[in-house]
Amino acid sequence: MPYAITEKCNGCGACARICPSGAISGEKKKRHAINGSLCIECGACGRVCPQSALLDAGGSGCLMIKRSEWLKPELIMEACMACSICVDACPVGCLAMSELPRNNGVDAFPYLKDTRACIGCGFCSRECPADALTMKKRDKDKGSR
């Protein structure tokens, strides 16, 4: 089931701007709508909506979360098999494989190349076969690994 926008929507367009699949459209200051065939249920719309106008795939209401509070992927290097499934899973392209090998190794590793672009969807973590990525709240001063 795709996400849905309720009548609480004031047409601010925040959801349409962040949606990575281009599923949301609508006129400014008018209720927006989600194209169900494009929605990938990443939840980004729900996290940015100041009106709490989004219903998730299960029909529950979504609450806006401050962007600094969004969960971000964190790598457990020992578990990572460098398969790059996580990089492919990311709908916004904020993850990348390193151009140099990991310490004492020969393989590259995934890292958050564009922290600001991350929408906290968790697809990278969910699809990692080795569970080498966990979604965590980041400290402000923490590095990008």
Binding site: A82, I85, D88, S98, E99, L100, V106
Partner: peptide, 18 residues
Amino acid sequence: TEIVKYHCYSCPLGCGGI
């Protein structure tokens, strides 16, 4: 001459290299 291993999508082996 290899700088880092190259893994195709979903490959844990990495026979390629840059």
